[in-house]
């Protein structure tokens, strides 16, 4: 019971509310607010912040160098999302149809690596892709030219690493939407004369569309904000927007610009999140 007869909240309500609320206000809401304020401030000569309001940090995004990094990040995130969808949809479809004894094992195998250390998993790829790494050795052994992916094609390597990192985010919502579809619907479609392809196009696909959208958002958001993958693969020289932000708080010491960049990224992420909750409902988390 939330309230007593006089409409006051009960004691246990406040016991539950206050500590967590204080925590998220102190360490999430206030820092985010400070970052917003900082994004409109100016950079001091030796780093630091001078509280003269300006829109210059946002305007700086128009500079070709920064604009290019932002657009490139969006491009890579989009490619990652599409690749995850192409790989993930058939897998989700397969998982939803496979016999249930196998299904649970396969789902577990999909979920477990995704909870394990992301840094280490990315490092493992570096081990394979680097110059004269395992991949190059395999190619050499087959008398093919070594691709030297990490050095020659950082962008492609990052894309590969992101697909690897976030594929499970795509498969799980897809699986959820495909799995709850009544198989009788497909039988009904066949019964009404639809070919397998037509019944997929007119029944299965439209019904799984929420899963497609949810999965796409779930892959797009972390890909756009990636930090570890480009940092590790590019050795600090290849920048996505996350790395650019990190740099402002490290080497460049331009906190206001870093804050502005963060807010641009955050806005994009929030737009995605709003889309996701529209699709799934807020209580579904």
């Amino acid at each position: 019971m939330t309230r007593d007869a006089r409409g006051r909240f009960s004691r246990d309500f406040y016991i539950l509310l206050i500590p967590t609320l204080m925590w998220v206000i102190c360490f999430f809401v206030v820092p985010s607010g400070l970052m917003l304020a900082t994004s409109f401030a100016q950079r001091g000569t030796h780093g630091g912040i001078v509280w003269h309001w300006t829109l210059g940090n946002y305007a700086a995004l128009g500079q070709p160098l920064y604009g290019k990094i932002l657009l490139n990040s969006l491009f890579i995130a989009a490619c990652t999302t599409v690749a995850c969808l192409i790989l993930g949809y058939p897998l989700a479809y397969y998982l939803a149809r496979v016999r249930s004894r196998w299904r649970n094992v396969l789902l577990l195998l999909l979920v477990v690596p995704f909870w394990t250390n992301f840094l280490v998993r990315t490092y493992a790829w570096k081990f394979i892709l680097r110059t004269d790494g395992l991949l190059d050795r395999v190619f050499t052994a087959l008398h093919l030219p070594a691709p030297d992916l990490l050095y020659q094609h950082v962008q492609f390597s990052v894309f590969l690493g992101l697909v690897y990192g976030y594929l499970a985010f795509m498969v799980l919502p897809l699986y959820a939407s495909l799995e709850k579809q009544d198989p009788a619907l497909l039988e009904a479609a066949h019964d009404l004369g639809a070919s397998p392809l037509a019944s997929f196009r007119h029944v299965t696909l439209p019904l799984s569309l929420p899963g497609v959208i949810a999965g796409s958002i779930l892959v797009f958001i972390p890909s756009l904000g990636a930090y570890i993958t480009p940092d590790l693969f590019g050795g600090g020289k290849y920048l996505m927007v996350g790395n650019l932000i990190g740099q402002q708080f490290g080497a460049s010491l331009n906190w206001p610009f870093g804050s502005a960049l963060s807010y641009v990224l955050m806005t994009l992420v929030l737009l995605g999140a709003v889309g996701y909750f529209r699709m799934m409902g807020t209580e579904e988390i």
């Binding site: 985010s32 400070l34 970052m35 958001i221 904000g225 990636a226 990190g246 963060s262 955050m266 992420v269």
Partner: peptide
């Protein structure tokens, strides 16, 4: 939130 935003805020 991307980790990096949480981290720098």
């Amino acid at each position: 939130m991307p980790d990096i935003i949480l981290a720098i805020s």
